[in-house]
């Protein structure tokens, strides 16, 4: 038999590491798949036997990735219970091993995976709660690292300009995440972050949430449905503020004039919190790249 080559040896080791059920199951599967025993691959003659040496890598593989998911979803884990969380996390890692160069991506597929485990027609409030929590915690993790509006001069927005009817263009920064959830979960996340182990689960209520970043601080807030609808519209692509107002009015069944007056009060705050950027529509014709997300650096005086 010719000596096994690098690709074969690497597949053998990775099979041992990633097979569920422990190192013995991994060694047996690697032998079945690649025709090599542990003694043929791992040098013997000094110190611990091959099985123990392989076990360090096999245990480390699972533990490292589990730790990463646990760190990314602390509230979900607290609410589900550690045992149930780990069960789902292990199943996820088995079906979706990392293919990324960064562990930041590991949790990205966890929410769709959880959703996919729901049997057809199965309805259970605890399941909806878990999905909401997972989505919220993943969105927060993404907002921490995404491109934000920091580094751009703060836009000073004059509400009178808005009321005066100047055509404005709005854009939503990449650091913003919008979620429509079945539970108001922000207090629960905050309680777990404070170290509470059994915070009360809130009763179900439709909730519109924004996660945004301003001065590198990530914050979560509940929005009114019209605010959420307006931002959701702008998140699909930067465009005139007025078309966002029309979309929001249609979505919530309110009058355009009423929303415009509310908007005049809310918009300066929304800009300050990093929910959106605002610029005169005209700037697109003056060298501003169309579709540029963040608008010009400064609001004109």
């Amino acid at each position: 038999m010719s000596a096994p080559q690098l690709p074969e040896l690497q597949r053998w080791v990775l099979t041992v590491m990633t097979t569920p059920g422990g190192v013995d199951a991994g060694i047996a599967r690697a032998q079945a798949l690649h025709g090599l025993s542990a003694a043929q691959v791992v040098a013997t003659g000094y110190g611990p036997p091959p099985r123990l040496r392989l076990d360090i890598y096999a245990q480390g593989y699972l533990l490292r990735l589990l730790e990463c998911l646990r760190a990314d979803f602390p509230t979900l884990r607290n609410t589900m219970g550690e045992g149930l969380f780990d069960l789902f996390a292990r199943a996820y890692l088995l079906h979706h091993p990392s293919r990324s160069t960064t562990l930041f991506d590991l949790g990205a597929g966890f929410v769709p995976f959880l959703r996919s485990t729901r049997p057809a027609g199965y309805s259970e409030p605890g399941f909806d709660l878990a999905l909401d929590l997972a989505a919220l915690e993943r969105a927060r993790t993404e907002s921490i690292r995404a491109r934000g509006v920091e580094g751009e001069s703060a836009a000073q927005l004059d509400p009178l300009l808005l009321l005066g009817g100047a055509p404005l263009r709005v854009a939503v920064p990449e650091s913003v995440r919008l979620l429509h959830l079945s539970y108001p979960l922000i207090p629960l996340l905050e309680a777990v972050a404070r170290g509470e182990t059994q915070p009360p689960i809130p009763p179900a209520r439709p909730t519109w949430i924004i996660i945004a970043r301003s001065h590198y601080r990530v914050s979560m807030h509940e929005l009114e449905p019209w605010q959420w609808a307006l931002l959701n519209h702008a998140q699909q692509g930067a465009g005139p503020l007025y078309s966002g107002v029309l979309a929001a009015a249609e979505a919530v069944g309110e009058g355009v004039d009423l929303l415009l007056s509310r908007l005049a009060l809310w918009l300066p705050l929304a800009v300050a919190l990093g929910y959106l950027t605002v610029a005169p529509l005209a700037s697109e014709g003056s060298g501003e790249r169309p579709g540029h997300l963040h608008g010009p650096a400064a609001w004109p005086a």
Partner: peptide, 19 residues
């Protein structure tokens, strides 16, 4: 506890809220 070899600093302890 189980040993974790070659620990890799990832987003564990990433400051969710800076201040």
């Amino acid at each position: 506890g189980t040993p974790l070899s070659n620990p890799i600093d990832f987003q564990l302890n990433e400051p969710h809220v800076r201040a």
